[in-house]
Simulated assay, not measured.
Amino acid sequence: MTTTSTNSGKPGGTADTAPRRRGRGGAALASERREHLVRLAADLFAEKGFQATTVRDIAKEAGILSGSLYHHFDSKESIVDEILSGFFEEVMASYRRVVDEGEDPRTTIAGLVRVAFGTLEPHRAAITVMQNDWSYLKGMERFAYLTRSEDEVEAMWVETIRRGQEDGLFRSDIEPKLTYRMIRDTVWVAVRWFRPGGRLDAQGLADHYIKVMFDGINTH
């Protein structure tokens, strides 16, 4: 719900100019530092927006010089690339598993909703970046996978909704693509107010949403 100039074009690939280090200890330390920088940058992107966040901002948050950041990433685009490709890899794999289980359309839609809500906490930054900076990022060649991935996700949902209509489980007077987009946006906008540790966790929130979506709020 990646194509870069230096990767294979599959989700998850990123450009990294970090120098090779000898020994497992050095490699592990470099990996930990890289992951730490990604987490810091993700929080900044979510808070300030990708375009408004500078390499200097990320370096300052990490307590290092801007030049030191380039030992791990060649640009802030490489960092957000890693954040977004990781998100799409995970969510699409989960969506495919739900669809491949071959359950009835209602069960499948419920499963897809649970997957979507389950992304709110671990991928808060990625979802926020997509909401705020989607138009900007998709205009860059290295982020062409965003549109392809979104198209694949949309196709999963739309096909399931149409199958439900054919089976008489869903209303025939709803437009499948519009229905999917309304569900998607309703779920993902929750990232702006959902807080872990609240009255409902992500799955409790998903259960409540499914109840309202399928049963409505009327008493009859």
Rank of each mutant, 00 (worst) to 15 (best):
T3K: 15
P11E: 04
D16V: 11
T17P: 01
R24H: 08
G25N: 11
G25Q: 13
G25P: 01
A28D: 12
L37F: 13
R39I: 04
A41C: 08
L44G: 05
A46C: 04
A46G: 12
K48G: 01
F50P: 06
A52Y: 04
G63A: 03
L69V: 07
H71A: 11
E77P: 00
I79H: 04
V80W: 08
V80L: 03
F88W: 02
E89K: 15
E90I: 03
E90T: 15
A93G: 04
A93C: 06
G102S: 03
T108D: 00
I109D: 05
G111P: 08
L112P: 09
L112D: 05
R114A: 09
F117D: 05
L120A: 12
E121F: 06
P122F: 08
A126D: 07
V129W: 01
M130Y: 00
N132F: 01
N132Y: 03
D133V: 03
D133I: 01
Y136I: 05
Y136M: 11
M140L: 15
E141Y: 07
A144Q: 12
Y145N: 05
L146V: 14
D151G: 02
V153M: 05
V153G: 03
M156C: 07
M156I: 04
T160P: 03
G164S: 12
Q165F: 08
E166T: 13
G168T: 10
R171K: 10
S172A: 15
E175I: 03
E175T: 05
P176A: 05
L178N: 07
Y180C: 06
M182L: 14
R184K: 14
D185T: 10
V189S: 15
W193V: 15
W193S: 15
D201S: 11
D201M: 10
L205C: 11
A206F: 07
I210V: 13
K211W: 08
K211N: 14
I217W: 09
T219S: 11
T219N: 15
H220M: 12
